[in-house]
């Protein structure tokens, strides 16, 4: 190989490597999370919910932001995980980590089975199918209220200590770190996935499906794998919420949940791995402050925000940061 070629290939490899190398700002969410623990000891319950919801939004980012699959039914997987963990805990199997793993498998199964159907279609039909899967599960949970407790919630969950050591305490210390640890692991896995050849091929499918078919990529299978992984992550998120609040009701499967998570992700920025870390806390903290005052106005402002963002700030907060950064760089 000539020297020039050597240099170009090395430079290309370097570009690839740069993508998955850790950068300083990737430590920020975790530092903030730990700092938040010390700064706001009275808000640990909200903190745990935020951490679990970030995971839920990450799961949406994988299918939507990377896979390009618009889903109105991600709550199906969240709810599947939540009910799995809840039912286990209500029937004497309260070991949380095992519950989490089983919930992940159960949600993944729902994802795999529904994915086989959903991912064969496109556009509105696909959107409808994701919605139908969720409303079907919602309806089933409602009607099976002898098992699920329906809208009033599952009774009698008893969640044991984490690893038999750390009891879930009244202040939410254990819950907070339990959620943080689960989020960290899932984030780490997802980060590897999106920077792997598999992740690149997902982006390829989103950008140009015809081209991916033409280079012999098994498009359906790739999407199915992503859909299943995403479902598992959503399931873990649901299980975290169920275990830390010791409560599951049918709203775990509701349309609002699927819709809200889309909004949170849009707010942070879709398809960039960190959108969830920004959009979810922003949304949930604002909701905690303002929604209590009047939930009706809350939805008005959220709706307005959505309309304005789609019209003017498509990339979310991270998109705005990018743009400001680009302007500053040009100035320099």
């Amino acid at each position: 190989m000539t020297a020039v070629a050597e240099r170009v290939v090395a430079s290309a490899a370097e570009t690839f490597a740069r993508r998955h190398r850790f950068r300083w700002y990737e430590a920020l969410p975790w530092l903030v999370a730990v700092a938040g623990y010390f700064a706001f000891p009275d808000y640990l319950a909200l903190g745990s919910q935020i951490l679990a919801t970030i995971l839920f939004a990450l799961s949406v980012d994988l299918v939507l932001g990377y896979g390009g699959i618009i889903t109105l039914g991600q709550a199906a997987f969240f709810g599947a995980g939540a009910y799995t963990a809840g039912l286990l805990a209500a029937h004497g199997m309260g070991a949380p980590v095992i519950g989490l793993l089983i919930a992940a498998v159960a949600a993944a199964l729902v994802g795999l089975i529904s994915g086989v159907v959903v991912l064969r279609t496109h556009g509105l039909t696909q959107l409808m199918m994701t919605l139908m899967v969720a409303v079907m599960l919602h309806e089933a949970a409602n009607k099976a209220n002898t098992v699920t407790g329906g809208a009033d919630g599952l009774q009698g969950m008893e969640v044991g200590p984490v690893f038999g050591l750390f009891h879930f305490d009244l202040y939410g210390n254990t819950a907070y770190f339990y959620c943080l640890a689960a989020l960290f692991i899932c984030w780490f896995v997802m980060r590897r996935i999106v920077h792997s050849p598999f992740g690149r091929s997902l982006t390829g499918i989103r950008e140009n499906e015809a081209r991916m078919h033409a280079i012999g990529s098994p498009v359906f299978r790739r999407r199915l794998v992503a859909y299943t992984i995403s479902a598992a992550m959503a399931g873990v998120s649901g299980a975290l919420v169920a275990q830390t609040t010791q409560f599951v009701a049918t709203d775990a499967l509701g349309f609002e949940r699927s819709g809200n998570v889309l909004i949170m992700l849009l707010l942070g920025g879709i398809g960039r791995l960190y959108g969830a870390f920004i959009g979810v806390p922003l949304y949930m903290i604002a909701q905690d402050r303002f929604a209590a005052i009047d939930p009706v106005y809350w939805y008005f402002w959220i709706g307005l925000l959505l309309v304005l963002m789609v019209t003017f700030a498509r990339g979310g907060v991270l998109g705005i940061v990018d743009r400001v950064g680009a302007v500053l760089r040009r100035r320099r």
């Binding site: 959107l127 889309l262 909004i263 009706v296 939805y299 008005f300 959220i302 709706g303 959505l306 789609v310």
Partner: peptide, 13 residues
């Protein structure tokens, strides 16, 4: 999808 979900939310309020 997002724009029209936003409109739906606003309509509720």
């Amino acid at each position: 999808v997002l724009l029209t979900i936003g409109l739906v939310f606003m309509s509720v309020a």
